[in-house]
């Protein structure tokens, strides 16, 4: 069985931006094989790199601005999105998920990445998800389980 890392990215203080973390909290209630590692929190960019060499497959759950309807979920891999060339990084605070994945690719440590993106509705400061997003959590959990099962 392959080791899989499931990461929920986002800040729980920014409403729907925290959906990745909320999904992990939901997953933590279920039982998984020890080969599956669940990671959540407001992990910043490059700190994710250290996990990549250990996991051939990584699933990232994140609020993504895809210009879709709030609550729309889209699954994509890293090859499908435009890479960052670091050109707008003027501060260490600008090194984010996209830059981290680009760097991992250049370093040849990029695992097979599946991003489950959820179009947020409201990322203003508050601790709750909007109803549209909250209702999608069971669907996202199902999707993740499918990705995990496909590998085993």
């Amino acid at each position: 069985m392959e080791r899989i890392l499931v990461i929920g990215v986002g800040s729980v203080l920014r409403g729907d931006d925290g959906v990745g973390v909320r999904v992990i909290e939901e997953l933590q209630k279920k039982k998984f094989s020890p080969k599956i590692k669940l990671l959540s929190g407001d992990i910043s960019g490059l700190d994710l790199l250290k996990y990549f060499p250990e996991f051939p497959k990584v699933v990232i759950i994140d609020a993504v601005d895809m210009k879709l309807k709030p609550g729309d979920v889209k699954t994509f891999n890293f090859e499908q999105i435009k890479k960052s060339d670091f050109s707008d990084v003027v501060s260490t605070h600008g090194i984010k998920l996209l830059e981290t994945l680009t760097l991992a690719e250049k370093l040849k440590i990029l695992p097979e990445v599946t991003v489950i993106g959820i179009q947020p509705k409201n990322i203003a400061f508050n601790l709750d998800l909007t109803v549209e997003i909250k209702n999608k959590i069971p669907y996202i959990v199902k999707k993740i389980k499918k990705v995990i099962n496909e590998n085993n």
Binding site: R14, A63, I81, K82, L97, L98, G117, P120, I123
Partner: peptide, 11 residues
């Protein structure tokens, strides 16, 4: 930097 919203442009 408190928000980690991924902004994606598709190929």
């Amino acid at each position: 930097c408190s928000c980690h919203l991924l902004n994606v442009e598709f190929m």
